[in-house]
């Protein structure tokens, strides 16, 4: 049986959290997801809204080091947490080994799933630095790509894992914010491929969902 919705409530709560190494303090609505908070409030548009039900993985971010579907977490729950998004792991000049490997293996086509793929892979490699093929496939099962056919993505993850086992993580890991509002420069030029893939182009009116 469906409970009846009560009167509209807009009681906002103030949350304090760290996002990509930067302290943030904002008012959020109870029904605001972590994904909506990152995209709409912080303009961190790398995480995407795909299925909104935990099937596609496009919204993946790290919460206290673990990969989490940010469409299924409320912003209020992020109070006191450490969040890392794709914007926090590298930029065009300083690619994370996973980003470099995705480019090398052409594991990116339209790019919509890529931030989620990379964050999911970071979550995997943090727990298991040397995963076999089965472990990578299992870890990536919740991240969907409609372009590549997955082989390139799996190859890229294996290669990046090899690099990360040799190079100390601190050399590339978890960069701080690289530009205003934590958005890495050079990644969101209006009209770019990223914009075509669903990135919110800053400064333009938001398209209706």
């Amino acid at each position: 049986m469906v409970e009846r919705a009560y009167a509209r409530r807009t009681m906002s709560t103030t949350i304090s959290l760290r996002v990509n190494g930067q302290d943030e303090r904002h008012d959020v609505e109870p029904n605001q997801t972590l994904l909506a908070f990152l995209r709409d409030t912080l303009d961190l548009t790398g995480a995407k809204e795909g299925c909104n039900e935990g099937e596609c993985g496009a919204c993946m971010v790290l919460v206290d080091g673990r990969a989490v579907n940010s469409c299924l977490m409320l912003a209020v729950e992020a109070d006191g947490r450490e969040i890392i998004t794709i914007e926090g792991i590298g930029d065009a000049e300083h690619l994370h080994p996973l980003q470099a490997a995705f480019l090398k293996h052409t594991a990116v086509q339209c790019g919509f799933c890529t931030p989620g793929m990379i964050m999911t892979a970071i979550g995997l490699l943090a727990e298991n630095p040397d995963p076999d093929e089965a472990a990578v496939r299992e870890a990536m099962a919740g991240s969907l790509c409609r372009c590549t056919g997955y082989r390139q993505i799996l190859d890229a993850i294996h290669e990046a894992a090899g690099v990360m086992r040799v190079v100390p993580a601190v050399e590339f890991g978890m960069r701080g914010p690289a530009g205003p509002s934590g958005v890495a420069p050079g990644l969101m030029a209006p009209g770019s491929a990223e914009a075509a893939a669903g990135v919110k182009v800053l400064g333009l009116p938001e398209m209706a969902p």
Binding site: V2, E3, A5, P30, N52, E53, N69
Partner: peptide
Amino acid sequence: GGTDLLPQMRLGRRAPATI
């Protein structure tokens, strides 16, 4: 965890006034 509740709310199958 909210992984069942939140999708059900989006689909209108559940509509709690308080979580």
